[in-house]
């Protein structure tokens, strides 16, 4: 098919051209050629399907460059049929990203159940098991009751140590709570460098590596982000947290100023931890000066995982 036009057929198999076709960015005569090839040419059909799935996956993972993402949302999502593809892809991407690579697990979702037991309880359990194991081995070796008693004494010492650790943790929690209370005010959130958990740079290409954020311990209630800027173009900035699976902005910061440091210019925000779950997100940064209209500055993708 089309073998008499080898040069033109090459363009039909070019991934970038196929993406432009899927996003309605080709001129009409070019789009007509792709329309025909998308039904007639087996090789083009296969390539187009692969490119479309990769494009949709990149969108739901929040790794599309901002210009492509905007075009994707205005053009590709205009069809209910394609929106269904995107909804499926959102679930599918979560499933395959979370699945083990070699041996499939009985259920990938069961691994998402949050660890509800406090770390202290886990540590205590491990110590109890270890101590019981020690006792068992000692008795088997014939050291008798005296050894068992010394094991029990060791267990008592562990219990006392745990109590002391628990007190230390309570003190540390109180200090963290104070820091978070300070970070909750917008001004402090913008300036609180110590609270920053992840430094993000703007996405420029779809192939950019997505930074990974491991969820912090359950006692934290906010996560800090520092969004790096190329330059200070605006007086104030606003950050929106977007969930690519629903394409909804689920949280917005106040309008805040950028700050300069030895590392460059950046905007700092503290996002409520309760909003984050293991999946991809983007932080959309908008800027404005005075009473002017807001402008899109950039998009910062990241992935949340459990430790």
């Amino acid at each position: 098919m089309d073998s008499h036009k080898p040069a033109r057929r090459d363009t039909l198999l070019d991934d970038q051209q196929l993406i432009r076709y899927l996003l309605g960015l080709l001129p009409p005569n070019e789009a007509d050629r792709f329309d025909e090839a998308s039904v007639v040419d087996d090789a083009v059909v296969a390539r187009l399907r692969g490119v479309e799935d990769d494009l949709v996956d990149a969108y739901v993972r929040g790794t599309l460059a901002i210009d492509l993402r905007e075009r994707f949302e205005s053009h590709y999502l205009a069809s209910p049929r394609r929106r269904e593809r995107v909804a499926f892809a959102a679930a599918f991407a979560r499933a395959v990203d979370d699945a083990p690579r070699s041996a499939p697990s009985p259920s990938w979702r069961t691994r998402w159940i949050p660890a509800l037991l406090p770390a202290l309880a886990v540590a205590a359990t491990l110590l109890l098991v270890a101590s019981a194991g020690l006792l068992f081995v000692s008795v088997r070796l014939g050291r008798g009751l005296s050894v068992a008693e010394s094991g029990r004494a060791a267990l008592d010492r562990h219990a006392r140590d745990l109590e002391a650790q628990n007190a230390d943790l309570r003190a540390a929690n109180a200090e963290i709570a104070k820091q978070l209370a300070r970070a909750r005010t917008p001004a402090a959130a913008a300036q609180e460098v110590k609270a920053i958990a992840l430094v993000l740079v703007p996405q420029t290409r779809s192939a950019d590596t997505v930074p990974v954020l491991e969820l912090p311990p359950p006692h934290a209630d906010r996560v800090g982000f520092e969004l790096r800027l190329d330059a200070t173009e605006f007086d104030r900035y606003q950050v929106g947290l977007r969930d690519p699976t629903s394409n909804a902005v689920i949280w917005r910061s106040d309008w805040i100023g950028a700050k300069s440091s030895a590392d460059g210019v950046s905007v700092g925000v503290a996002v409520p931890l309760a909003l984050l779950k293991p999946q991809h997100y983007t932080l959309d940064l908008a800027g404005r000066t005075g009473g002017d209209a807001a402008h899109v500055v950039g998009s910062y993708a990241f992935e949340v995982t459990r430790p």
């Binding site: 991407a93 395959v96 083990p100």
Partner: peptide
Amino acid sequence: LDSCLQNLKQEQRELIVEYYAESR
């Protein structure tokens, strides 16, 4: 999706995980 994934053969599951999963 969970249920449908369980209906796949093991080699099919492994293939799509390897093919579509995001990695560094």
